[in-house]
Write a protein that binds this DNA or RNA. Sequence first.
DNA 1: CGAATTTGACCGGCGC
DNA 2: GCGCCGGTCAAATTCG
Length: 513
Amino acid sequence: MEVAVERPMPVKEEKRTDAKPMAALGSARSALPIVFESFASTQSDAAGIKQEERTLEAAKAEMGEVREENERLKTMLSRIVSQYQSLHTHFLDVVKVHEQAAANKAKLPTMPPAPAAAGAGDDADDLVSLSLGTRPNGSARRKGHERSSSSSGGTAADEGHQLSLGLGIARGSGALSASADDDKASGASAAPGSGGVLNLSSDSSSGADDAAKPAAASPPGAARKSPSAGEGADDEVQQQAKKARVSVRVKCDTPTMPDGCQWRKYGQKISKGNPCPRAYYRCTVAPQCPVRKQVQRCAEDTTILITTYEGQHNHQLPPAATAMASTTSAAAAMLTSGSTTSSSSASLAAHHLPLAAAAGMFGPTTMVSTAASCPTITLDLTNPAAQPHSLMHSSPYAAGYESKAIPAAWSNGYMAYGGAHPSYYAKNSPAPLGHLFGGGVSSRPEQLYAAAQSYLQRASSLGGGGHGGAVAPPAAVTDTLAKAITSDPSFQSALAAAITSVMGRGGAAAAQK
DNA sequence: CGAATTTGACCGGCGC
DNA sequence: GCGCCGGTCAAATTCG
């Protein structure tokens, strides 16, 4: 039994408290130990009072230096914030232009009939989204393509407070978006491994998302295939669809990642190249649910749990499970739409963007693999930088900060958030989302979500415009923005906090076994 | 006693 | 055609 897994992850309160301290604090922390050390030593030395005084002076001097550094960092932070704001403003302007263009274009009969099919629209503006977190019922699919499981039927009530981190890619533009609904924050604290690694690998089949919905759906592959120049590509697509997967890597010390769903283990195997056995689970929330997952520990670091999801839930999910479900669905959709664009990953990269964009924008820790029959997106959040604690305890702005730990795509969402609530961002720049999700400080779910949706829409519009090819290359814009945002440590810490929150929540609610 | 997990066997795909 | 390997099945075992 994996009951143990379900228990809420222990909250590492002490580490969370630092959410607000800024970079300055981080640096201060690093300096303080030295001070205390010397102070302690003086005490031990009862004889040399003079030496003690000397040490104290040295300590004071160090303190002074630390203060100065704090000031410097604060200044730097405010500068960064202002730059961020101006950048965002500029971005919004650009987006508006594209939005209008897209609006005009939308009136054209280019939209594929297969509506729902997430990411099905090959030529139209497909919005591929990868979301982590739950979202309020209903609003989820603004862009048609989001078939997150939550929308499938989540009870509205339950989903009132949910956290969602979404990433959307507007076809053609590569725009990404993230949305953040508030979450009781409750979860916030709880990240199991707090430092988690999330790997999302989606199958083209993702259709999965759609497929999951039993009735509606048309075969995964069929749903998304593009009628146009299909040819051999279609077959390939369909095949890929069958293997669509979403894998999530999380640093977790429990047997399985608490994703909120109920799973039943049906097998275990030792796979080649990894001494750790791979466990196979099947979703038991509904008898006919096709979703399966594989859980395996990373050979290099056994604290890292690699969970690969396959398929789409065909039933209502508990609130706690919608986050992961949405993520896997969206990721699958993204891959799917990508595959429909062209027949090979190479061409994908060269052409429209879904996959290419995803691969490029997610950053080094995220991989989108289309080579094999199982296209996979890997989001590696195991990176230390992704861990809230470490983030908050260190000086984010210090050189060497690992900005790549967070997918650039998510940064867009972050940006959206910031754009909608600049003031909030300014006040809490160190870890805005961290407060939101983790601290639960003055978070406003509706606003956040609205902001996210707003951004989503813009992003998709942008994509449409980009597709038209009339305007400046959106991809370039978003890429630039993505880089800028991603390099923002506060975003990283925020994201880490959000993920942590999700994970924690999942653990509490999940009835995993 | 029922349900879930364990674990060896079986099956199908893929590469050589 | 053969062997390897990943994935699944199902009987046996364990647990609550």
